[in-house]
């Protein structure tokens, strides 16, 4: 067993895990954070996307011990009890998701994109979502929602959420 200590959504969490455990399983099974989804478990679908030290990763491809000492942000870290994150709000308003299975991953990819590039072109948005497969929507309404957030249509007072 290996002891891992990491910062998850602003909180320090510790667990003792087998060295081969993935970050995705650590989040879901040890920490009860089931937002990141297990789609393929081999890095193809993006349903497990989380942000580690500011970069998106497929958490099914990262071992839990590799996340030791790092900052992990999952979809649970975006909304507060009072309000959704602007990206979530925009997704809700546009009807960007259907079954929703890809949603947590897509939203984390969108968050990482907008953090780095607050005014992305459509092609840059498509590029940022290219690792997140969606079977339902054709991506159109996700792209529109991300554009809305970039334009500030869903802006909220600074400091109210992640």
């Amino acid at each position: 067993m290996t002891k891992v200590t990491l910062n998850v959504n602003g909180e320090t969490r510790t667990a003792s895990v087998p060295p081969e455990m993935t970050l995705l399983r650590l989040l879901r099974e040890e920490f009860g954070l089931t937002g990141a989804k297990l789609g393929c478990d081999v890095g193809d679908c993006g349903a497990c996307t989380v942000i580690v030290d500011g970069k998106t990763v497929n958490s099914c491809l990262m071992l839990a011990p590799q996340a030791d000492g790092r900052d992990v942000l999952t979809v649970e870290g975006l909304a507060t009890m009072e309000r959704l994150h602007p990206i979530q709000k925009a997704f809700e308003e546009k009807g960007s998701l259907q079954c929703g299975f890809c949603g947590p991953g897509v939203i984390m990819s969108a968050k990482a994109l907008l953090d780095e590039n607050p005014d992305p072109s459509v092609l840059e948005i498509r590029d940022a979502l290219a690792g997140n497969l969606c079977r339902c929507t054709g991506y159109s309404k996700m792209i529109e929602a991300i554009q809305d957030v970039a334009r500030g249509d869903n802006r909220q007072p600074v400091g109210e959420s992640a």
Partner: peptide, 17 residues
């Protein structure tokens, strides 16, 4: 039987609709 060789459209494959 997996998504690296069963290919489905990504956001980059989808046209403007």
């Amino acid at each position: 039987s997996n998504l690296t060789n069963y290919i489905m459209p990504t956001s980059l494959d989808m046209p403007e609709v």
